[in-house]
Amino acid sequence: MNTFRAARFALRAKPTASFLGRRTYADAAGPSDKIRLSLTMPHQAIFKGTDVVQVNIPAETGDMGVLANHVPSVEQLRPGLVEIIEEAGSTRQYFVSGGFAVVQPNSQLSVNAVEAYTLDEFSIEAARAQLAESQKIASGQGSEADIAEAKIEVEVLESLIAALK
């Protein structure tokens, strides 16, 4: 159990050379140094079983980098940037609205979100205008539900604006 904990802890940190060589779980599927990524939304699949090198996800418990042979886990996502490092070494970034990431034992990673867009599809002015409005509602005299709704929006938009800068 102790070694499992240590491995999990190590994998949570940003990747280092030392654990690239480590085998923790299944060795079977796909090329052993790649992770098979599916990035899907209800209306579209951006990645569908594509082999990539590394995926960084904004989990509720903290940002984590997922490489091949990661310990299986289920992570709830915060609104934030999913970063995908592809085989050619290029990086792709998507801002997701929140959802779940499931790391399966055979180096498969499924990231499910309601909305995911590349950063160039956002308008920072629109985000800022919305943020100002939501902040006003959040600190206003509205009903508890309205305030809670505005607080969620503030959190999402602050994260988005930080990513766009």
């Binding site: 609104p79 929006e153 938009l157």
Partner: peptide, 10 residues
Amino acid sequence: IAARAIRKSL
């Protein structure tokens, strides 16, 4: 709610 905020920022 989170998804709606994102859609509005596009």
